[in-house]
Design a protein around this nucleic acid. Structure first.
Lengths: 257, 257
DNA sequence: CGCATAATTGATTCAGCTCAAACCGAGTGG
DNA sequence: CCACTCGGTTTGAGCTGAATCAATTATGCG
């Protein structure tokens, strides 16, 4: 694998990515290693490679396979299907999320493209060591199972959102959740471009723009990049019946937006 | 668990389900047991319970947890979110599919309701033995992982379908796939009521009805319950760009529609 | 500063929903 | 055997949420 080569010839890299040195100690505490003994964890960590992607560059393209278990370490990754000049977002992965684990594990062609929306660091665990550890320690398989379960739930929420909420409701709910996730870290911020948000929420950029006005009239403002919850109760009411109490799947080690 | 009780007091059952005696030999060949040694397979099989549901009855309701790993043995199960008099279908499970495995394994409240659309037989593997076997034989965890991966892919396809195809295209694609899946088994048939199909495809029953006419004008007819592919090329062209070559995830042990 | 990209705004169109009425086939009971 | 009912499906008319197209106006960024 030339990724390993990249790592050691530090500084070199493909057109889209650049090798970086992963912080092994920080990685060790990642939920994917929960309940895993040190021996196996070390086996995985010593085989891993770090890659950095600039905003806008592709990590995988739809139809391609993905070698090795990818882990989003920093940044935001958009999973989307790109058709011509249109783009259909599925989900946004953030730090600590596994990136297309199913695709990586079963060697299938990816159904969607993965693209960095901000500067993004990805850790790649080599397939050989993943397979080896999976066959020896069931904690790893369990952790991945839990994560994919969370991904499935997120996807189902997305489906329900698309078919039982309006564009405005989806937007309001998303901003509200975004604000909650950043609670205590100063003013909550929209970390991505509006057009990517539109794609994620299944609406056009123009509609997003108009809906921002409607949502603002309901106590939820976006000034510049900062989200201002002016009238929480009103905003929540505007979101309509929430098909899913809970909002995200952090209990299942999913941090996606 | 009163399910076990149900099994042994054969004939009794809850209002919605009736205990049945599972065919253990047939079950043993289910993909969930692939690569599993006989000892563990027997451990699981000997703890299992069979339930039969009549068309229309609920297997789980949204918000409820699900005890034990459920397996659809016969029939069709609709996963849908029910809100008031409206219903939002997510997917249709058929024979051999796991039913909400993520919900069962992690004890989460289900996000959707599961309801039998036809007479349905479900096999339930008791949580205790599932946990035990999962911790000892990693084949089981792997098999479940594979299945959930397939479920995730199906969900993503659904999301893409909803946002990049029209109602007519979704309908045509679905019927075409249904016909292909039944190839060689005589005339292909629509196994469910139209209103459930509409829900599954994210449209109203009225729209489905109208779209059937449009689709018929494109070489794909539904007369009564039988699907007639009159002009395949035309029908396929009508479906528009297929975001996903392949169509289903049978390679990942998913048989859902 | 100036160019390219992103975001807004307006006007228009259209797919799909809603509501309401007609229709149809399968039971059911007189 | 027929009338009646009842759920499901179809048809029609009208409405509306959101997309599209086109034209500005902001916002970076080199």
């Amino acid at each position: 694998m030339d990724r390993a080569t990249d790592l050691h010839s530090a500084g070199e890299g493909s057109a889209e990515s650049r090798a970086i040195v992963p912080d092994l100690h920080e990685l060790r505490s990642h939920p994917i290693f929960d309940g895993l003994d040190d021996e196996h964890a070390t086996r995985l960590l010593s085989s891993c490679v770090g890659l950095q992607y600039r905003a806008g560059s592709y990590i995988v393209r739809q139809g391609e396979p993905l070698e090795g278990l990818h882990l989003v370490h920093r940044g935001l990754v958009d999973l989307a299907y790109v058709a011509g000049d249109h783009e259909f977002g599925v989900i946004l992965l953030s730090a600590k999320d596994l990136l297309l684990p199913a695709t990586a594990l079963f060697g299938e062609a990816s159904i969607v493209s993965a693209r960095a929306l901000t500067t993004t660091k990805v850790i790649v665990l080599e397939p050989a060591s993943v397979d080896e550890v999976m066959s020896q320690a069931q904690a790893l398989a369990n952790n991945i199972l839990k994560t994919i379960s969370g991904h499935w739930r997120m996807a189902v929420r997305n489906i329900l959102d698309l078919s039982c909420r309006t564009a405005g409701q989806r937007l309001a709910a998303f901003l509200l959740r975004l604000a909650d996730l950043q609670a205590g870290a100063g003013a909550p911020i929209l970390p991505i471009a509006k057009r990517h948000l539109a794609s994620r929420l299944g609406m056009s950029a123009e509609t997003l723009s108009r809906m921002l006005q409607v949502v603002a009239e309901n106590g939820l403002h976006l000034r510049g990049r900062t989200i201002i919850v002016h009238d929480r109760a009103r905003a929540e009411a505007f979101c309509g019946p929430d098909p899913y109490p809970g909002g995200d799947e952090r209990a299942l080690n999913v941090f996606a937006l």
